[in-house]
């Protein structure tokens, strides 16, 4: 059994070239928005807009320039499926199409997906969407086919600055912590890791080095599992059942005890 594998994305060295997006599309043969006839989003250089069934990598462009332009910065981040250790999508999938692989990654098997869309609602990161060509829910597979062949995923392979790094989670966490320490030492004290420990959904197998609040990057600071409602929900069910039973007893209490029918 291989060790858990994943991505560590150091957003401080991303240059926004989108090579990861193109490499992903090329390897996974994903179609383009409207056959390539897309429209300008008007939101910086981001015309991909979001992760969905045909965009498994998405580079975000966040412009932070105050009116006087002092200390302006352009935050860039290549977003992808987090391959959560506690994965909401996997939990809700009714057909078992979503599996945890031997690499501890989360993969949707397209041939077993019935297109119910439950996983789309269950993902706290908005990663999954329907692929209109396949008619199934799709997302990053962490290049499961390449991993099985001993290759690294297409996006990290294509990344020219090593912003996206692939490896074992232990090795990546170690490297990421060293990088945070290095950044703190050189004055970038805002640097921290998002999802590199168990606090977020038991750990994200694709975690990030960020320099601003998670929400700035469109990430939830405290994402929840769909099962969080299971226990209270179950108690409510028991309570509801008892209530119905009680009402039944009350409603029908006179039946049979009244006057005999003619």
């Amino acid at each position: 059994m291989p060790e858990p594998m994943g991505f560590y994305t150091d957003t401080t060295v991303c240059i926004g070239c989108k090579a990861c997006e193109v490499a992903c599309k090329e390897w996974n043969q994903l179609p383009s928005t409207n056959g390539g006839l897309n429209t300008l989003s008007g939101n910086s250089y981001d015309n991909t807009r979001r992760l969905d069934g045909i965009h498994w990598r998405h580079v975000k462009f966040i412009e932070q320039f105050p009116e006087d332009r002092r200390d302006g910065r352009w935050l860039l981040m290549s977003d992808v499926c987090k391959h959560c250790v506690q994965a909401g999508c996997l939990e809700v999938c009714p057909t078992g199409a979503i599996i945890r692989t031997e690499f501890d990654t989360v993969v949707i098997q397209s041939d077993a997906c019935n297109g119910c869309r439950d996983c789309i609602a269950a993902c706290p990161f908005g990663v999954i969407e329907m692929n209109p060509v396949a008619g199934t829910a799709q997302k990053c597979t962490l290049c499961y086919d390449r991993l099985q062949g001993g290759l690294e995923p297409a996006c990290s392979k294509a990344c020219p600055t090593q912003s996206i790094q692939f490896g074992t989670i232990n090795q990546l966490r170690d490297r990421a912590q060293k990088r945070v320490a290095q950044l703190h030492q050189s004055g970038e004290t805002r640097a921290y890791l998002y999802g590199a420990d168990e606090k977020i959904l038991g750990g994200l197998n694709s975690f990030y080095l960020l320099v601003d609040k998670p929400e700035v990057y469109g990430l939830p600071s405290d994402p929840k599992m769909p099962t969080r409602n299971l226990k209270p929900g179950a108690w409510f069910s028991v309570l509801g059942g008892m209530l119905v039973g009680l009402l039944g007893v009350i409603s029908f209490r006179n039946r049979g005890s009244g006057e005999p029918r003619p």
């Binding site: 240059i15 926004g16 070239c17 989108k18 090579a19 997006e21 193109v22 599309k25 090329e26 179609p31 383009s32 928005t33 409207n34 056959g35 390539g36 006839l37 897309n38 429209t39 300008l40 250089y45 015309n47 991909t48």
Partner: peptide
């Protein structure tokens, strides 16, 4: 220039994977 396109575009503006990234 943009990273998504190359020069006058003969190697990029015909490629849907690139035009969707910088469409207009």
């Amino acid at each position: 220039r943009l990273t998504e396109h190359y020069l006058a575009g003969a190697m990029s503006r015909w490629n849907p994977w690139l035009t969707e990234l910088q469409p207009e």
